[in-house]
């Protein structure tokens, strides 16, 4: 087969592009565009976590905090600073990166469960600020977000699309850019250094990898990814509440990362797709929703430890030709 001669990077990008283009052909209503957009938005955040968890082998139980920063930047900056909501995405990304850089160094000295609880605490602090400073953020009830004006712009150019369709394509393009950067990073010297940390920090250090700096850069990069996804979420929904920054959302993002396969970009998108669409499917089951979700999390992690994509790939490869 010629396909196997293509590098994994090209293969992943091709597969993702195909997925993005083919999926709408099966959408019976515009509601599905919304789900698709949500999948790509979560997918972007999860690709960021792949860099931190899959490449560098660190853990974070507080990344939803950065979703919150990205989201509330898009909600607050247009109102108080008068800049356009689209520019606010960059402001949010900058703030998230800066904050990650400031807290990253002391936090990333910790390992394993200590790192887990430190990131957990960090995320909870952001959540508490967002839900308690009601005069700014509207408190737990959340707040409205200004329109981007993108739809009006498209309309004036003669394109008539629904908001869901527009966000489907925007989220898809942004995620593809994110995937491209992450895949390039994988094989770059920085990416190799990060992956060496995953195996053994001591070994990486002895061959001259600056362990603290590389961990910090993975943390900052993943924070920026997550922040951009939060901004997209706020702009698409035109509404935001502190729940996006909560502990459960952090857990959700981490689960998506590990479920699909923590070390691969493609796995990240699959993980995001499954856990984003699952609740929509499970609403049919009403009271059994939590039971099924919990069961799936446990079963996949017990029987497919490396995540769905790597495990299935292994099974396929083992099959006699």
């Amino acid at each position: 087969m010629k396909l196997t001669k293509l590098s994994p990077k090209i293969l992943t990008l091709l597969a993702l592009a195909l997925l993005v283009i083919i999926a709408p052909m099966f959408f019976p209503s515009s509601f599905y565009y919304r789900i698709g957009a949500l999948i790509f938005i979560n997918g972007l955040a999860v690709i960021g976590l792949v860099i931190l968890v899959g490449y560098a082998g660190q853990i974070s139980l507080g990344h939803a905090g950065f979703v919150g920063i990205g989201a509330y930047s898009c909600a607050l900056a247009p109102e108080h600073l008068g800049i356009s909501p689209v520019l606010a995405v960059f402001l949010g990304a900058f703030l998230s990166g800066l904050l990650a850089w400031l807290v990253g160094r002391p936090i990333l000295r910790l390992r394993g469960h200590y790192l887990a609880v430190a990131t957990l605490g960090f995320g909870i602090l952001i959540y508490m600020v967002l839900s308690n400073e009601a005069q700014w953020t509207g408190g737990p009830d959340g707040m409205a977000v200004q329109a981007t004006g993108l739809k009006a712009l498209l309309k004036s150019m003669g394109f008539k699309v629904s908001a869901s369709e527009m966000w489907y394509w925007i989220a898809a393009v942004v995620m593809m850019i994110g995937a491209l950067i992450a895949l390039n990073l994988h094989t770059s010297p920085t990416g190799r250094a990060l992956r060496s940390l995953h195996d053994s920090e001591v070994a990486a250090g002895t061959v001259g990898v600056n362990v603290a700096n590389y961990k910090l850069s993975a943390f900052v990069i993943s924070a920026i990814y997550t922040s951009v996804s939060g901004s997209e979420l706020a702009l698409m929904n035109r509404f935001i509440s502190p729940d996006v920054a909560g502990f459960l959302h952090s857990v959700e993002l981490l689960t998506m990362t590990v479920l699909g396969g923590a070390a691969t970009v493609f796995g990240a998108v699959i993980g995001a797709a499954i856990l984003t669409s699952l609740p929509q499917v499970l609403t049919v089951l009403h009271d059994f929703e939590h039971i099924v979700l919990g069961l799936i999390m446990m079963l996949v992690m017990i029987f497919m430890r490396e995540g769905l994509v790597p495990s299935l790939a292994k099974i396929l490869r083992r099959r006699p030709k």
């Binding site: 059994f288 939590h290 039971i291 099924v292 999390m297 992690m301 017990i302 029987f303 430890r305």
Partner: peptide, 30 residues
């Protein structure tokens, strides 16, 4: 849930126990 996952990484085990907690909560609700 824990014995069958012997030797799994810290992140995997954290997710298994979080899954278990969601499952138990769902059962309790029922």
């Amino acid at each position: 849930a824990i014995e069958p996952a012997k030797g799994a990484s810290v992140v995997t085990l954290i997710i298994i126990t979080i899954g278990a907690s969601i499952f138990i909560r769902g059962m309790a609700q029922l």
